[in-house]
């Protein structure tokens, strides 16, 4: 267990995609938060933040999942998520409860304490003492919700700057959507593929060996397309690189 018993109690919400498809991101987040002096808890009773339901018009399920999440996280000082869109979802919870004032104020309290991982480290903890090595060139994709809803842009770069060996190469149109869009990518696969192809062309243009982002959904999309094309470019969640916990990348063969 960590020795930092005096730090803030941080509830880590391991998002549903990370939980199932890339647990390493969760462990990387734990390491980073502990390195930054937090007491990390992974509360039970959590599954998904409800974003797919909310974005598909299924407000009944979105509200139920929001309530479940609020209850599970109420006792933490802060709530941190390794995803801009899920952190953004928690910030939107109060909107769901216009007709239920009691829940709305609980949602409000949660929203005010919820952060995306890199923004929490940099903006709240003012921590950037990253100790990691990544001897490769990489480019960073600004995932949409984190960027536009939460203002995540400079924070991951400030942290990546501390990773030894890493050479960050900015790509063209780094702020343009990769075509994931939750259920969009399966409902409109042709458009989505065209968008991810544009993204991959911009990645390739930098010559970087890896692509990083703070959003697993986008990374699954980008990595899935890279793999299909047989590209050697590897994809990682930014937390994995910052924690020095990289394997052969998302969708790779290494267990």
């Amino acid at each position: 267990m960590s020795v930092n018993t005096g730090g803030p109690r941080v509830g880590l919400f391991v998002t549903c995609l990370v939980d199932l498809l890339r647990p390493n991101v969760g462990f990387a987040a734990v390491k980073l938060l502990e390195d930054a002096g937090c007491r990390v808890e992974v509360p039970g009773g959590l599954t998904c933040c409800g974003q797919p339901a909310y974005n598909s018009g299924d407000l009944t399920d979105a509200r139920a999942l929001a309530k479940q999440t609020i209850q599970a996280l109420e006792s933490c000082d802060y709530v941190v998520l390794p995803s801009g869109s899920c952190a953004g979802m928690l910030r939107l919870y109060p909107e769901l409860f216009a007709a239920e004032p009691a829940w709305q104020s609980r949602a409000q309290q949660l929203a005010e304490r919820s952060y995306e991982l890199t923004s929490f480290l940099v903006d709240v903890l003012h921590w950037d003492a990253v100790e990691a090595e990544f001897p490769a060139s990489a480019t960073y994709h600004d995932a949409c919700s984190g960027l536009r809803q939460l203002g995540v842009k400079r924070q991951p770069r400030q942290l990546l700057d501390k990773v030894s060996g890493l050479e960050l190469r900015e790509m063209r149109d780094t702020e343009v959507c990769c075509g994931f869009g939750g259920t969009f990518c399966v409902k409109y696969p042709d458009i989505s593929t065209r968008m991810v192809d544009d993204k991959i062309a911009n990645i390739a243009e930098t010559g970087a060996q890896a692509v990083l982002a703070g959003e697993l959904g986008c990374l699954l999309n980008i990595a899935g397309r890279l793999r299909r094309q047989g590209s050697p470019v590897r994809a990682y969640h930014v937390a994995e690189v910052l924690a020095g916990m990289t394997d052969d990348g998302i969708g790779g063969e290494e267990a």
């Binding site: 391991v14 990370v18 939980d19 199932l20 498809l21 890339r22 647990p23 991101v25 969760g26 462990f27 992974v42 990518c185 399966v186 409902k187 409109y188 696969p189 989505s192 593929t193 991810v196 699954l220 999309n221 990595a223 899935g224 397309r225 793999r227 299909r228 998302i250 969708g251 267990a255």
Partner: peptide, 20 residues
């Protein structure tokens, strides 16, 4: 529609929850 143009990275034996 996913796998028409993309591979789908599969889970790797354990969820975060169970490993944690």
């Amino acid at each position: 529609g996913w796998t028409r143009s993309r591979d789908f990275p599969l889970p790797k034996g354990r969820t975060f929850k169970s490993a944690w």
